[in-house]
Amino acid sequence: MSDKELPLVQHLIELRTRLLHTVIFVLVVFCCLFYFANDIYYIISAPLQNLLPENTSMIATDVVSPFLTPLKLTFFAAVLLSIPYILYQIWAFIAPGLYKHEKSLAAPLLISSVLLFYAGMTFAYFVVFPLLFGFVTGIGLEGVATMTDIAKYLDFVLQLFFAFGFAFEIPIAVILMIHAGVLTPDSLAAKRPYIVVGCFIIGMLLTPPDVFSQILLALPMWMLFEVGVFVGRILYKNKEAREIEEAKQD
């Protein structure tokens, strides 16, 4: 084995170890939450169940749905709760290969991305779900009972959780594009009208067909874009100053 191959093998071994630790951690969290699987599902389904007409309820059309659906949600919750530990493992693996200024940027971005993803999910649960399900249950056809399948409901809310979670990552995406030199703060600011229109189109697609709920999603996305441009402008100026200083030293 040559000297050049040894570091690669060591990196692969470290990667395998960290992946193993991550899987074990997620499974431990899952086992801790398993007992509360039904309670977790009830919490997630509450925005719809609280709006269902009297004498109606959610249903299970598959024989194993009452068992597998809460189990699926519990595993999803375990992964979400494990994200900080997962990011720590990722950070511990890549940090040795980063420069000092890259470390000072990467750590806040990782933490901010997690917090923003959680914020997007929270926004969906407390703001969007009541509006969406209130609209859907309010326009039901006469003589047709509203009884949603628990598995389809879970798939639907998970899609919305991911959609809003990733939508709230807009500042991180903006900052990364500026830092990578793909776009500049001024070029992004010049595209503001298109960004605003795009936010409202996304809001229209992800929310009920009413102006109020569309605005509730579009405005936060727009504001998050502005935050990303503001922070990116500061980082861009710092990067330019650092490059000028390095050029003088050379």
Rank of each mutant, 00 (worst) to 15 (best):
I44P: 01
A124Q: 07
F225A: 04
S187I: 05
K103D: 00
N55S: 11
P108H: 04
V197R: 03
P96A: 07
L110T: 01
L71N: 11
A163E: 01
L51R: 11
G120F: 02
G198V: 08
F156L: 12
A173I: 14
A190I: 11
L15D: 05
L206P: 02
V136M: 02
A173K: 07
P220K: 08
E142V: 11
V136W: 04
T22H: 13
P209E: 01
I40L: 08
L160V: 14
S57F: 06
S213R: 10
Q249N: 15
P96N: 07
L19N: 03
V196G: 14
I244C: 11
L224V: 03
V63Q: 01
S187C: 04
P66H: 00
D186Q: 13
I90K: 10
Q89K: 02
Y85S: 08
Y88S: 08
F126P: 14
Q10K: 15
V128P: 11
P185S: 00
V229W: 12
A77C: 12
Y85N: 05
A190Y: 13
R18T: 05
P70K: 06
F117Q: 01
Y88T: 13
C32L: 07
L48I: 06
L52E: 06
G181T: 04
A247Q: 11
V182A: 12
S213E: 12
Q159K: 15
Y153W: 03
G120W: 08
Y85H: 09
V144L: 09
Q49H: 03
Y236Q: 10
V174I: 08
L158A: 05
A167H: 01
L12H: 08
E102C: 00
F129E: 02
L131S: 15
G134K: 07
I175E: 11
H11C: 00
L71I: 12
F161C: 08
Y85F: 00
S45T: 13
H11P: 00
P47S: 03
L81N: 02
A167T: 12
H179G: 12
Q249V: 15
I178N: 03
